[in-house]
């Protein structure tokens, strides 16, 4: 089919995968005990803003869902537009499992409403002795990769590689390192 798609120049959106998100909750046990990485109580979902009437409706639905989450699991939320035209849903919860569950729920809602095509990634924030380490989940690949930004748009590539290697057994780590794209100025 892929050959035929190329021959006829057909484009299909890449489907979003959400179930692998839960693996970060399992991997967190090792991250905390062996790597001394503690979750920072925040995570975010990033997707491309599309000006559409149904998108506006979805935004209302999401707001409702997030308010429900706020009552049920005390998950706080915030919507942030970034300079690249993407919308961030930033979630805050001191309980990591609640954070992962809410994030998964919102992702599923977005996909069910037909906006899965525009999902970019989810980001989980961790800290170790005050420095931030992020794990980025790419919806289209269904994989995670570490992102450790330093000052001046530099990355701690060595530490990122180490994290990727160490957590490979517990987390679906993205094999193609060229796609470990940086996400600068995260609103988390």
């Amino acid at each position: 089919m892929k050959f035929l798609d190329v021959l006829l120049g057909r484009t299909k959106p890449a489907p979003s995968k959400v179930d692998a998100i839960f693996s970060i909750a399992t991997a967190y046990i090792s991250m905390e005990t062996k790597l001394e990485l503690h979750h920072a109580g925040t995570a975010g979902i990033c997707f491309k803003m599309v000006s559409s009437t149904s998108f506006d409706r979805l935004k209302g639905d999401l707001e409702e869902l997030l308010q429900l989450a706020r009552r049920e699991t005390a998950t706080d939320y915030e919507m942030v537009n970034d300079e690249h035209g993407y919308l961030w849903l930033v979630l805050r919860d001191p309980d990591f499992e609640d954070l992962v569950t809410t994030l998964h729920l919102i992702s599923t809602t977005l996909i069910e409403s037909g906006f899965g095509d525009q999902l970019l990634s989810s980001v989980f924030k961790f800290t170790k002795e005050g420095t931030a380490t992020y794990f980025i989940y790419t919806y289209k690949r269904g994989t995670f990769y570490p992102f450790v930004p330093l000052k001046g748009k530099e990355r701690d590539a060595q530490y990122e590689l180490k994290l990727g290697t160490l957590l490979d057994a517990e987390l679906p780590v993205e094999k193609n390192r060229e796609t470990w794209y940086p996400l600068w100025e995260l609103p988390l």
Partner: peptide, 23 residues
Amino acid sequence: TPQEAPQLHTMVERLCSIADLPK
């Protein structure tokens, strides 16, 4: 390079990521 044109590179990276294409 991404350092020379950060905005453009971010745009390409994100679109490639969304469409699951190599950059």
